[in-house]
Simulated assay, not measured.
Amino acid sequence: MYVAADCSDFDDVYPALGRLVLSSSYLEGRLRYLVGWLAATDEASIVFDGQSTDWLIQSAKAMLGELKQTGAYALQDCGRFEAALARAKELNNDRNFFVHGEWSIESGDDLCIPRPKSRPIDERVFYIARSRLRKVFQEHEVAVVDVELLAGQMFELGREITAAVDEGHRLRFAWEALHPPTVIESHDDIDVLLEALQRKARRQGGHP
Rank of each mutant, 00 (worst) to 15 (best):
L85T: 10
C7I: 04
H187E: 08
S52L: 12
G65Q: 01
S52G: 08
P114L: 15
Y2I: 08
A164W: 00
R19I: 05
C78V: 15
Q58F: 02
N92A: 12
Y2Q: 12
Y14A: 02
D189M: 09
S118G: 12
V136H: 07
G79N: 08
D189K: 05
R134W: 05
V183P: 02
D42T: 11
F97K: 05
V136P: 00
R19E: 10
D191T: 04
F97P: 00
Q51D: 11
E185S: 01
G101W: 02
H140R: 11
E82S: 12
K68W: 07
I161N: 00
D6W: 04
V183K: 08
L17P: 11
P114C: 15
I113V: 12
A72Q: 11
V165T: 02
H207Y: 14
F97S: 10
P15E: 01
R159L: 14
D122A: 04
V147G: 14
G50T: 06
G158R: 00
E141R: 07
D77V: 02
L67T: 07
G18C: 07
L22I: 13
A88N: 07
C7L: 09
R130P: 12
L75N: 15
V145F: 00
S186Q: 02
A4M: 12
D6F: 06
Y127T: 07
A44D: 09
G65C: 01
D42L: 12
A201G: 08
M154K: 08
A88S: 15
P180V: 02
F126R: 01
R80D: 11
F48Q: 02
L150W: 08
G205Q: 10
A174H: 03
G36Y: 03
L75S: 14
H207Q: 15
Q198A: 04
D146S: 12
A4D: 15
S104F: 03
F137C: 08
T70G: 10
E139F: 02
D188P: 00
A177R: 09
T41L: 05
E106P: 03
H187N: 05
L111H: 07
W37F: 15
L67W: 06
K61D: 03
S104T: 08
P180K: 01
E82Q: 11
F10N: 10
D188L: 00
P114G: 15
A40H: 00
N93T: 13
G108K: 06
Q138S: 13
A60W: 04
A163T: 01
L17G: 09
V142K: 05
E185W: 00
F10R: 07
D122S: 04
K135S: 08
A201I: 13
